[in-house]
């Protein structure tokens, strides 16, 4: 006589649970991958070329030295140089289209913070930090790529290493969250 199996050894139930777990984990993994990938930009901006020609970051991201937001370049900034340059590649043709009609380029910001985080570029630049400390080596990238795991622990880790004597101020909640 075969003993009746307890309910948790039911094969159908186990397969069902496994499927649900697979879907959930797969969804989570997809979400993580999507958020860590560089978003689609209107023009595949070659950072490597522009940084390579020696243009300082602040020429296009001009707000970083003076204010909280570094900003993305306006069409005037791009077109200021590019109207005198050739437009014979697809990317440059796209730029010429924006430039000649004076339409703002809908850049997609990559390094964004949630609404409850108030990051300020100015003190970081004033403290002598280089852009690539937080933004990665853009000289090797075309479109800007996000840094994975750039969260509060990442901020605090650097704050502690850079200035342990100011850590009370630099770890204060009200410094970034209000």
């Amino acid at each position: 006589m075969q003993r009746k199996k307890p309910w948790w050894q039911n094969a159908g139930l186990r397969i069902g649970i496994a499927l649900v777990m697979l879907v959930l984990l797969g969804g989570a993994a997809t979400g993580v991958v999507i958020t860590q990938k560089a978003p689609q930009q209107p023009i595949e901006f070659p950072h490597n070329f522009h940084v390579g020609t020696g243009i300082p970051c602040a020429y296009c991201h001009s707000g970083a030295e003076t204010g909280p937001v570094a900003g993305l370049p306006s069409i005037e900034t791009c077109w200021g140089c590019h109207q005198q340059l050739r437009t014979n590649t697809p990317r440059l043709a796209k730029l010429a289209e924006y430039g000649s009609t004076n339409t703002p380029i809908p850049w997609v910001p990559v390094f964004i913070q949630p609404d409850f985080v108030h990051f300020n570029h100015r003190p970081h630049v004033a403290a002598g930090l280089e852009c690539k400390t937080c933004h990665g080596d853009t000289a090797g990238q075309t479109v800007a790529e996000p840094i994975p795991g750039q969260n509060m622990g990442w901020c605090l880790d650097c704050h502690y290493k850079m200035a342990p004597e100011n850590f009370t101020r630099l770890s204060d909640c009200a410094t970034c969250h209000y």
């Binding site: 949630p114 101020r169 204060d172 909640c173 410094t175």
Partner: peptide, 15 residues
């Protein structure tokens, strides 16, 4: 609900 050592005020951390 934490006390800000820097500003000496009471801050509410929404997140």
């Amino acid at each position: 609900s934490v006390h800000s050592e820097e500003e000496q005020i009471n801050v509410q951390v929404y997140n």
